[in-house]
Structures are given as C-alpha cells and as structure tokens.
Design a protein around this nucleic acid. Structure first.
Length: 198
DNA sequence: TCCACGATCGGCT
DNA sequence: GCCGATCGTGGAG
C-alpha cells in the first residue's frame, strides 16, 4: 500500500471527502495494529456555519488551521471523540470528519477498546464517528495533531490496491448539526454494511 | 466566571 | 421515534 501524500489533502475539501472513501486508516497501538476502510465522511469548509472553524481559531480547533494531512480530534457530547483529517492549504480551517469504517485488522483489540464481548459483530465496531474513535482507542491526548502522511505516525492513511466493491458515492445533508443542513456534504459508499447497519 | 450546547450512542417505547 | 448520559468548550456577561 502507498501512504497518502500531503498533496492528497490539498485538493478541494469536498473532493478530499469523496476521495477518502475506500482508503485505509492504520492505527498503531501498544496492543497491536488496527486498521479499517473508510466508508462514510463529512466535509467542513471555510465559511461553513456548522464547522468548528467558523468562528476562528481557538485552542480546541487550532490544528484545523495548520497543515493538511494532520489529524483533528475533539471531545463531544461529554463522552465521544471524533476523528477528522485537515485539508486545504494552511490557515483555511477545513477538514473531513471520518464517520464510519469497515474494520480490517485488530478486530479483537477493537472489541477490547470498545469494552464489548467477543461475539460483538465487527461491522458495528466502527459504524459511527464516536464508535470508530473508541475502537481505535483514540483520544485528544494520543490522537490530535498527528501527521497522517508520516509512515512513523501512530495514525496514517493509505491507498489500498483493491477497489471498493462499487464506487457509487451517495451525497446527503450532514448528521447532528443545527445549521448548514442545506449543504449535502456527507458522503458514503452505498454498498457498505457499516453504513446500512445503523 | 458561568452556563447552554453539542459533527453521539444505546436503550426504551 | 424519543430521551438521557456526561463534560469540555467558547460565547456571553
């Protein structure tokens, strides 16, 4: 597999959000290597009232205004961490939220991270943005501001040799936001179990 | 300082 | 479909 280079993240954020579908995120932990295939994303752009970057740079969202290809992780609803990848040239504050993945490697470790039984269905481990961060064991201490284009990083994104089962991409309004609902900036792969089993 | 509100999830009706 | 858990964050005051 080839690691996605910085240039991959410098395209328009809507294109990056779609291009990320089918790519592989690899998460290295002390317990072992975890990985999954991205099947659902959301784009957050400059001037977008639903984006954390909308009101400018703060301590929380600082990495959104940094280099493309870095991770942005934040804590939400008092209990979940959500994983984003920063896009665009520096300072634009745009990013792509990773909403769902299909687990590949380290599924047993994911179950341990999630605190579920050994017979818990693998497809349900990462079928939501809070759940995939939990399965990966990602929090703000270990997951925010990491360079995903550096092969030595604990979180990296790779281009898989294999194609997705089908490249049909569906666009819909984003989930869980109160403003910016008119923008169909959520993208998912129609054939994915991780999206359909919800 | 304070406080209302989330880029969610799972359980219950 | 609805609702509660749970707490960091930032905008208001």
């Amino acid at each position: 597999m080839d690691i996605l280079p910085r240039a991959f993240y410098e395209a328009d954020t809507l294109d990056v959000a779609k291009s990320l579908l089918g790519k592989i995120i690899v998460r290295r932990t002390e317990a072992g290597v975890l990985s999954g295939r991205i099947v659902e994303t959301e784009a957050y752009k400059e001037g977008d009232p639903a984006s954390h970057a909308f009101r400018g740079k703060t301590k929380r969202n600082a990495v959104m205004f940094g280099s493309p290809g870095f991770t942005y992780v934040y804590f939400n609803y008092g209990m979940y961490y959500l994983l984003n990848l920063v896009t665009q040239p520096e300072e634009s504050g745009e990013a792509v939220l990773i909403r769902a993945m299909e687990p590949l490697d380290g599924i047993e470790i994911m179950r341990q991270n999630a605190g579920v039984a050994g017979d818990y269905p693998a497809v349900k481990l990462m079928n939501g943005p809070g759940k995939l961060a939990r399965a990966f064991g990602i929090n703000r201490d270990n997951g925010n501001g990491i360079d995903a284009t550096d092969p030595n990083s604990a979180i990296t994104v790779w281009k898989d040799r294999n194609q997705m089962c089908e490249t049909e991409i569906v666009a819909t309004p984003r989930i869980g936001i109160s403003v910016g609902r008119d923008r169909p900036w959520r993208f998912y792969v129609r054939c994915s179990d991780a999206v359909s089993r919800r």
